[in-house]
Structure formats: C-alpha cells, structure tokens
Simulated scan of single mutants.
Amino acid sequence: MPLPLVWLGAGAAALFAGTKLTREIQKSQGYINHFPGECKRAVQPIDGAVVCCGIYEVFQHTGIWVDNNIIELRGNGLIRGISPERFLTERSGNTIFVACDKHRQPLVKPDTAAVASSRLFEYSEYDLLSNNCHRFTMHCVTGVDRQITRFAELNATMCATFNTKIYWQPIINA
C-alpha cells in the first residue's frame, strides 16, 4: 500500500509548486507586492477593508471587515458576520491579513461596508468555482457581480479597482 502514499505526496508537492508559480506570475504582472505572510508589519483594518486568511497554506478565504467583525460568504451559502477568531476557526492559518496600498493603508471603497452589511443573513447558492467568497467580496467592493474564482483573480481585480499593487499585511490583534 505505499504506492498510494507516494502518489498523494507527489500530488501535494505539485499543488505546492503550482501555488508558488502562481504567486510569482502575479508579482511579475504587477498585481501584488506582498502575499499574505510575506510581510510582518501589522495594520489596523478599517470598515470596508478586504481581509483574508489561509486555508492549508494553499487557498485563501476572504471577507469584508465591518465593526470589528468580518462579513463572509460561508460554504453553506449563508452570508454572515463573525468575529476574527471565528473567521480563523477550522482554517490552518492563525493570522488575518488586510489588503493595503504601498503606504500600508487599507484599500476601501466608500460603500463597501454598507453593501456587505446589507447582505447579512442572505443565502447565496455557494459554489467553489462560480460563486465563492472571492466573488462575494469583490461584489461588495465594486458593486458589480462578476465571476471571480481564484485568489489570483481577486488580486488582479483589486489592483485594477484601486489602481495599485496589493500589499497583504497582517492585522493588529484586537
């Protein structure tokens, strides 16, 4: 039975290598400067800021910071507000990151917090590829509902929306 373990290990290594390659491509395309975890300078999030946390060091989960909570699209389709501690529960990371500009100021559009808050307790048919947390997050930021599947697409859309590279900074612990 060691052969299945070898294949599993090879698959994990390929996934990790693919993640590293995707990061380098995003940096070379100018969308992002710091990925989550690449910079230690902590920032205080503000209402309407885009936040994320890691999931098994391969995926990211995103939401909107509002009143010291995070509004997210959960995997069951419920849009809910949760504490930062709950946002990290059942995920591999122990840090929340906020999208900032080069001056480490959180990137915020004026109506983002209001749009996110207005969607609380709604259900949205969750689908990992066509209707996930990244799509919900960018809809709150831009007011436009368009398909965003991957964290890379979220970064590219945020870069275009805010006309700046994205610097993912850890948040100051409350």
Rank of each mutant, 00 (worst) to 15 (best):
N68Q: 10
L107S: 01
G30E: 14
I96W: 01
G48N: 10
R91K: 12
F35R: 04
Q105V: 14
F59Y: 15
H103P: 00
T95P: 05
K109M: 14
I96R: 03
C39R: 11
P84I: 00
V58T: 13
P45L: 09
E38I: 08
D101I: 06
N76E: 06
A113M: 07
F97E: 05
A113L: 05
A113C: 03
V43S: 13
K109C: 12
I64T: 02
I64W: 04
Q60F: 12
I79W: 03
L78S: 09
A49T: 06
S117V: 03
A116E: 06
I79T: 03
A113Y: 09
F97H: 04
V51N: 07
G75K: 13
R80C: 15
C53R: 05
Y31M: 04
H34T: 10
P45W: 09
V108E: 05
C52L: 08
Q105M: 10
N76M: 06
A49E: 07
F59V: 09
H34V: 10
I32H: 04
V108L: 04
L107E: 04
K40D: 15
E90S: 11
A99C: 06
F87Y: 03
N68A: 01
Q44Y: 09
C52T: 11
R80L: 14
G37Q: 06
P106W: 09
T95E: 08
L107F: 01
K102S: 14
R91F: 14
V51P: 05
A49W: 09
V66M: 03
P45I: 10
E38H: 05
D47S: 07
L78F: 08
V108W: 10
N33Q: 15
L73Y: 02
A42G: 04
V108D: 08
T95H: 02
G63M: 01
T95W: 07
N68F: 01
S83M: 01
N33L: 11
Q29T: 01
T112D: 08
C52E: 12
K40T: 15
L107V: 05
V108P: 03
I64D: 05
E90G: 01
V115P: 02
C39F: 14
Q105S: 11
I32L: 12
V50H: 05
A49P: 07
G77R: 02
